[in-house]
Write a protein that binds this DNA or RNA. Sequence first.
DNA 1: TATAAATATCGAAACGTTTCTATTTTTTGG
DNA 2: CCAAAAAATAGAAACGTTTCGATATTTATA
Lengths: 319, 319
Amino acid sequence: MASIKDVAKACGCSISTVSYALNNDKRIPEVTAKRIKSIAEEIGYFPSGAARNLKKRNTKRILVAISNFGGPVYHELLEGIHYQLQKNGYTMIVSTGASSDTLLKERSADGAIITDINIATEMLLQIAKNFRPIIVLDRRIEDESVYNMTINNQKAMYELTKAVIKKGYKKIAYVHGVRDVFDNVTRYDGFNQAMKEQDMTVFNEYSGNFTKESGVEIALSIIQEQSPVPDMFICSNDEMAIGIMETMQNHGYSIPNDFGISGFDDIELAQYTTPLLSTVKINHFEWGKSIAKNILKLLNFEKTDISQQKGEIMIRDSF
Amino acid sequence: MASIKDVAKACGCSISTVSYALNNDKRIPEVTAKRIKSIAEEIGYFPSGAARNLKKRNTKRILVAISNFGGPVYHELLEGIHYQLQKNGYTMIVSTGASSDTLLKERSADGAIITDINIATEMLLQIAKNFRPIIVLDRRIEDESVYNMTINNQKAMYELTKAVIKKGYKKIAYVHGVRDVFDNVTRYDGFNQAMKEQDMTVFNEYSGNFTKESGVEIALSIIQEQSPVPDMFICSNDEMAIGIMETMQNHGYSIPNDFGISGFDDIELAQYTTPLLSTVKINHFEWGKSIAKNILKLLNFEKTDISQQKGEIMIRDSF
DNA sequence: TATAAATATCGAAACGTTTCTATTTTTTGG
DNA sequence: CCAAAAAATAGAAACGTTTCGATATTTATA
């Protein structure tokens, strides 16, 4: 593996001269710099990241730890983060599972953005003793060493629910995602708040896990057990809503005639269902950008206003 | 940021003793090791990855460079790679866009798996001068410094096409993805080979870009221009097939009565279409595992048999 | 009890950069 | 033509680890 020494030797000059030349330091005359660069290229030399990171005490990288690569939600979030980091000369690395732990502990980046509920809060606080900034997206941690950025789920779901009630639905059911996960809890809170405020009683609650399959199962069990069907399903996310829609339609139900249904997230698929799914639109790309902006500010110990990302209610045809 | 020095000071011992203790070297008695470890934990010390990487001349990381985080295909591939790497004590980092270039140049990993056509072959070869192993998945590079692992697109598409012909379809059209991309070229080759072999003439060829939207557009243009409709669409991937299916169905066509259609990849959605889409199933999780196994072998300069991943024809209901 | 062997600990070099300071070379102008 | 200033180059320390070789301490053996 060629090192800066090899380049220096090939150029007949010192290591420091090579370093300055490759980093475009103005103390090296242009002509020499050009010569050195071309020799470096010929050799195929690129500076070792490890050595540079060690010396400079930074990496110009931001780590994004996610829980899995599937699902329609992370996609745009990552693109948004990457877009903004790129723009500021930073590199993004994405990890999942146990890899995330390792990368965090090793301080493989200058900062981390975390949306992976499998990374224990306790471990995060341990890491935060020696590593900052960390922004978490998937929970609230009340500790000064970690920053939270969340979606204002509660407010959005509150408004969506109010709109549902206003339309006159009476037998309103809630479809949970994974129970004690931040997104589910806060969305459910917003739902409840609106229901209480309007003196409505909840018709039923179902338990899913945020996947389309769990929506399918919920619908199937309603049909098989001939349980009473609500006139409105308020779902904790789009995927479950789509699972329920498709399954119920396949069994002869018509939406929104027989019942209404809503989702949350406005994933791409929500624009292809029939009827078009009413939901809450989260602009994940923009959210990603603002997360990235914030972490860059935190890096420089600048003040940030870490406000919650707003959701926009999209009332389409499904209720 | 606490360093090993701080731990040594707190323990009242030397740096080397701390290092040995934390790395479970048997020359440190268990009781001392325990003491040192607990002090380290208290301080919140984790060894610096950069320093370790520099000294050990490895990172225990593998970089996976992908072209984007969307789409249904990468998901399982990444899980497969991660699963296998994890099992062998390696960490996976995923990158996209310009970040990939930087990470490759800096040698931020011990090896790289690349499936991003935006990374120029020329640059890859430049990087390969000083960095190995590199496995590319999305093209063939005939150069000893880079390894190829590809899907046997040609064979699978050849067989699929033969099955189509055998069913008696006569007016067979091909729907291209991005034209000169490996997957498209090789699939098209297989298609052509079967057609020639059976003395069939191609009814028509359409140009898409692997997205569902491009499928929609193709269908829309056929309808609007009232062009003759083939009795079979052989598509370069599932997403385009689904776009065509839905659009044509929305305009009153019935599948497979009016025409047949096939995809490639067997994405999850393919099991939810009506009719069920006939396609070629690629087990991306398994493929990911075998890619990871191979890169680990290459790391140790072991011989690998870099064979092509086979596809399995899934004839369902769409032709 | 003296000494060898085994065990525990330490010091220092090295990894490949960046960057501060020092030195050499060139240019300027009186 | 010389001294001083400016420009170009070089040397060396430091970043935080790992690990080799050396030293100090304990234990075993004669």
